[in-house]
Design a protein around this nucleic acid. Structure first.
Length: 745
DNA sequence: CTAGGGTTAG
């Protein structure tokens, strides 16, 4: 009796003093230990009891084994008990046998559980369900469904727990037909009124993207428990219906009141992608208020939320304050750094993990590789590739995808193709990554060849495939032979109903110089989304049709379409290239009013606009501090100085940029070379030109050569200019137009 | 006395 009050030590004292201990006293004492978490003592006492020849009680065995299965550190003791069960022929007790089954499942020994199940003399609905749960925990969802069918053939009736397990397993592999079949069975047996069954139906239909069904079930439930609410929230999030998720979260607080770690985790995961940092901070406050700050999973979600909102420092502070970190915490940090193109810190984290020999997995490497997906850090990426091979994860699908994408973005699409060829397993993402690699490097033909082999192999493509292929076109001659047939294919396959594909078509025609077709597609559309408008604006901007771009933006305003960060940066680019200060200032005002002025591209667009309009003081007012200045901002500042004759300032800025650890790129060199040419600094200009390639690894582009010719020509060195021109055709690399950000030669 | 449904990292 004392044990029930938790005073277990006193209970043991009384137990030891008892003169006459019967079976019940032993069993009570053991149960007391189990209930208070003293599993080792419980197990020891149980063995003593057996030594003394007492009859073993199925009730006690079942509760011991259940406790051992939960504790995860009582495996040997559990095995001992299984031994006793066999010796005493207790497997005939279906309760005992089922708890042994569950015990093996708890230690992930599914095949042992399965063997035991086959040998069990008697099975009830719990035994069947327990094995299903074990299989599901091990990811063997197909086996779960098989077992369910065998169970029905055996004439065993399902109960609510059976259904919840089967339904959630159906959601884990692509078989909608099956879940409808199970649903029929559920309704026939009247289990749909059960909260748990309905909850699993809500989340499974959510996983299949059938939100109408999920909502119908949710809205027709008599009672909602916290899991019902969490399930519908997760379903909205999974289907990217973020607004609805926030609305239902609000409803949940009004109608249900209670929220828990899972609720907060689910809602927090949308704050980052929706740019709702305020919500995120508010929810973080709620996490602290409810005392969940020790929850690792929840804190991991907060890390990602802060990274997605661009608040790396908040994420870092939170990470360093975590008393315990798991693999996902580390991986989230690395993914966050990768998101911010912060290769250095991502690799630093990888280094810590490897040196401290912590557990890593495929996601660790996938994140590290994605942090190296840039020409600048490709050499680091190759080292990580080496580490991947050492770790033996090079055949992993996700790691392979990350490798392909890294080599593609790093300008080595053929290396990406090598990796692709060696992958034992491929998915759509793999194909898309390879196509995008060739597309981004301007290798249209290769991209199309891959797309063609996809079709020959009957691999279904998605909108991303088409966007990537469409994005590879960039010269007029590709239109007739390749672009228009692709457009035809898109019409035939019905992908033209996809908004993203339509926008890419508009851009594709524009990139190939056929603005008329872009316009035609645009004006034929009934439902124009802001993104559609932005595509056409960008298409015009791309071709230097700045007036046309501004005209479209005015039309867009008249049509009542709100500007977003994309339209604003396009509009700013147009007004700065036309050097219309009034338009630019007006746009700056709109950006502040709509709170887009802190977006990276918008902020840089505003600075560039002031720079190009000659308002350097206004530029300096919004320029970030040198420590946090991006390369783009450095280039804008340098180009502004250079363009308006502040040659010394331009040169000073170049060196300041180096001091602050920003690597100059081809745009930086255009700026500094043009400053030299305007200032008549011939030798200095030539030495920047030489070190550009040898020290900074930037290949000479046509823009740089123009600066040098100009430099030599202005100072009267016409012979040298001529011989430079003759040489330059041999070594000059021309950049695609889209890379040039602020040409000023 | 034995079984179940909702959350985080590519």
């Amino acid at each position: 009796m004392y044990s029930k009050f938790g005073n277990i030590a006193y209970a043991k004292h009384v137990f030891d003093k008892m003169a006459d201990r019967n079976e019940a006293s032993w069993n009570n004492m053991i149960s007391g230990y189990v209930k208070t978490g003293f599993f080792l003592d419980a197990s020891g006492l149980f063995l003593q009891m057996w030594d003394r020849g007492f009859e073993l009680n199925g009730y006690v065995i079942a509760s011991l084994l259940t406790a051992f299965s939960r504790s995860k550190s009582m495996f040997l003791e559990g095995l001992q008990i299984h031994g006793l069960v066999l010796k005493n022929g207790l497997l005939y007790d279906v309760f005992v046998a089922t708890s042994v089954l569950h015990f093996y499942g708890g230690y992930a020994l599914v095949s042992d559980a399965q063997l035991l199940f086959n040998e069990m003399p008697d099975r009830n609905v719990v035994s069947w369900t327990s094995l299903m749960v074990n299989l599901a925990d091990d990811g063997l969802f197909y086996e779960v469904v098989n077992l369910y069918q065998r169970m029905r053939q055996a004439g065993v009736g399902c109960n609510q727990n059976t259904f919840t397990t089967v339904i959630s397993s159906c959601g884990s592999f692509d078989d909608e037909f099956l879940v409808h079949q199970v649903l029929g069975h559920v309704i026939k047996t009247g289990h749909e009124i059960n909260v748990s069954v309905a909850n699993s139906l809500v989340s499974t239909f959510g996983r299949f993207g059938q939100m109408e069904v999920a909502c119908y079930i949710f809205n027709h439930m008599d009672v909602h428990d916290i899991i019902s609410w969490n399930s519908i929230l997760a379903a909205f999030v999974h289907n990217l219906v973020f607004e609805e998720a926030l609305i239902y979260f609000h409803l949940m607080r009004l109608n249900h009141g209670e929220v828990n770690e899972t609720t907060l985790s689910t809602v927090l995961s949308v704050c980052g992608s929706m740019d709702k940092l305020n919500w995120g901070r508010g929810l973080h406050g709620l996490v602290l208020k409810l005392g969940y700050e020790m929850d690792i999973c929840l804190t991991n979600t907060l890390l990602t939320m802060y990274f997605e909102s661009g608040r790396c420092q908040d994420a870092e502070q939170l990470f360093h304050g975590m008393p315990e970190k798991d693999l996902i915490s580390w991986n989230s940090m690395m993914a966050g750094y990768a998101l911010g193109s912060n290769c250095l810190d991502a690799l630093r984290a990888l280094g810590v993990l490897l040196r401290q020999k912590k557990i890593i997995n495929f996601v660790t490497f996938a994140s590290a590789l994605s942090a190296c997906a840039d020409k600048e850090v490709l050499s680091e990426g190759r080292i990580v590739h080496g580490l991947v091979i050492v770790s033996g994860l090079h055949e992993n699908l996700v790691v392979g995808n990350a490798l392909i994408s890294m080599y593609g973005k790093g300008g080595m699409a053929h290396k990406a193709k090598d990796v692709f060829g060696k992958m034992p397993e491929k998915e759509l993402v793999t194909w898309n990554a390879l196509i995008s690699g060739f597309a981004e490097n301007g290798e249209v033909d290769e991209a199309l060849v891959i797309f063609k082999s996809m079709r020959e192999m009957d691999i279904p493509s998605n909108y991303i495939t088409l966007i990537n292929v469409l994005g590879s076109f960039y010269v007029p001659c590709q239109l007739l032979r390749q672009g228009m047939p692709l457009h035809g294919h898109i019409l035939v396959t019905g992908f033209d109903s996809d908004e993203y594909v339509r926008n890419s078509l508009i851009s594709m025609y524009a990139c190939c110089g056929d603005l008329d077709s872009s316009n035609l597609i645009f004006y034929a559309l009934v439902n124009r989304t802001p993104a559609t408008w932005n595509s056409l604006v960008a298409a015009n901007a791309h071709h230097g049709q700045w007036e046309e771009a501004l005209k479209l933006l005015r039309e867009m305003q008249r049509a009542g379409v709100n500007f977003d960060q994309f339209s604003l940066s396009a509009a700013l680019a147009a007004s700065s290239n036309l050097a219309i200060l009034e338009d630019g200032q007006h746009l700056h005002g709109i950006a502040i009013k709509l709170r887009f002025d802190h977006y990276h591209y918008v902020a840089n667009g505003i600075m560039d606009m002031y720079g190009k309009c000659g308002e350097i003081n206004d530029l300096l007012k919004i320029l970030p501090e040198p420590e946090t200045r991006s390369r783009l901002s450095w280039n804008i500042l340098m180009s502004a100085f250079s363009r308006h004759g502040h040659l010394l300032k331009a040169r000073e800025t170049f060196h300041e940029m180096l001091v602050h650890g920003s690597k100059p790129d081809h745009v930086s060199f255009v700026a500094i070379l043009s400053a030299c040419s305007h200032g008549g600094l011939v030798d200095e200009g030539l030495s920047y030109f030489t070190s550009m390639t040898s020290d900074f690894g930037v290949s000479a582009g046509i823009e740089h050569c123009v600066c040098i010719v100009d430099l030599l020509g202005r100072s009267g060195k016409l012979d040298e200019a001529e011989s430079f021109i003759k040489k330059m055709y041999l070594s000059c690399v021309s950049y695609p137009v889209r890379l040039a950000q602020t040409p000023c030669c």
